[in-house]
């Protein structure tokens, strides 16, 4: 299967799953502190963080308790970077994963679970649980927001800056209206604030140059068929180096020739709130 077909298949699968299977929020706060795709520990997250008012973490749907790690390491001592965590296998080939739980609070006695059964407590006051959804049939992580009830989010994403950068210099678009011709990497600093959360990734990003789409991704699903996790199997730019060391998204490189250039950057969150900026540049 080609990369483009794989990407289309994964996206279609995510939407198809959403159409037939819905999940409950795993805590009493239906608000993501960080979203699928957010920069976390140096790479993008394949799940989301969800705060809990009462400290409890509950099953998002009925299923079978498949795995309970009620400690901080696996058999043999391999450490868990999800902390104590639980995996619940559901019909429709989905597995939900609940991490960052408090060891000793997990419901280890359960075998089958109903929707909203208590799985454990978050580790510490004000802490958030990690929540992920894995599609076993497609070997891919699915953006949980696709399957959860909508958030109450009317705040649009923000575009903090767009940079054109190469080894010699870096231009901040909006401030710089004239740039020298040459090859540049396009860097985007964006976030999707909602409620009390500020550092969330948006749901989709698109870059147009002179009206032609040069980069587009939607954070629907992520898969690692060749040992490298990608949001979009057809685009290697959506891999582990998607974020630079500052947390800026790398949207690819452009060769700017002398004349005028128009760059259009748009970002949107899952609720459809969007932000779009257009820059006109004189290339010398």
């Amino acid at each position: 299967m080609t990369g483009r077909r794989t990407g289309i298949t994964l996206g279609a699968a995510a939407l198809a799953v959403a159409a037939i299977f819905a999940l409950e929020w795993p805590t009493d706060r239906p608000e993501a502190a960080s979203t699928f795709g957010t920069l976390s520990d140096g790479r993008f997250s394949t799940g989301m963080l969800v705060g809990s008012g009462d400290g409890l973490v509950r099953t998002a749907a009925a299923g079978d308790l498949a795995f309970v790690l009620d400690g901080d390491s696996l058999a043999g001592g391999f450490p868990s970077t999800l902390g104590a965590f639980v995996a619940v296998a559901h019909p429709q080939d989905l597995t939900t994963v609940y991490g960052r739980l408090e060891p000793g609070t997990l419901s280890t006695y359960l075998t089958t679970v109903r929707e909203r059964d208590i799985l454990g407590r978050v580790s510490g006051a004000g802490a958030a649980a990690w929540f992920g959804v894995f599609d076993r049939a497609k070997d891919a992580w699915v953006n949980p927001l696709i399957l959860l009830a909508p958030e109450k989010d009317s705040i649009g994403p923000v575009i903090r800056s767009v940079l054109l950068s190469n080894d010699e210099r870096s231009y901040r678009l909006g401030e710089a209206r004239t740039v020298r011709q040459g090859r540049y990497e396009v860097l985007l600093d964006t976030a999707d604030p909602a409620g009390t959360a500020a550092g969330r990734a948006p749901y989709s990003v698109r870059l147009l140059v002179d009206g032609i789409e040069r980069f587009a991704c939607r954070f629907d699903s992520a898969a690692a068929p060749e040992g490298v996790l990608l949001f979009d199997p057809r685009d290697a730019r959506t891999g582990p180096d998607f974020y630079d060391e500052r947390g800026f998204m790398r949207l690819g490189t452009l060769d700017l020739a002398r004349g005028a250039a128009y760059l259009n950057v748009s970002v949107a969150d899952f609720e459809g709130n969007s932000r779009e900026l257009t820059y006109q540049l004189a290339v010398e």
Binding site: L69, F78, L82, V97, R136, A140, A223, P225, G227
Partner: peptide
């Protein structure tokens, strides 16, 4: 380095 896709439940 190797991305495994699903979470690790056993390692040796």
């Amino acid at each position: 380095t190797f991305d495994l896709g699903a979470p690790i439940s056993a390692f040796a």
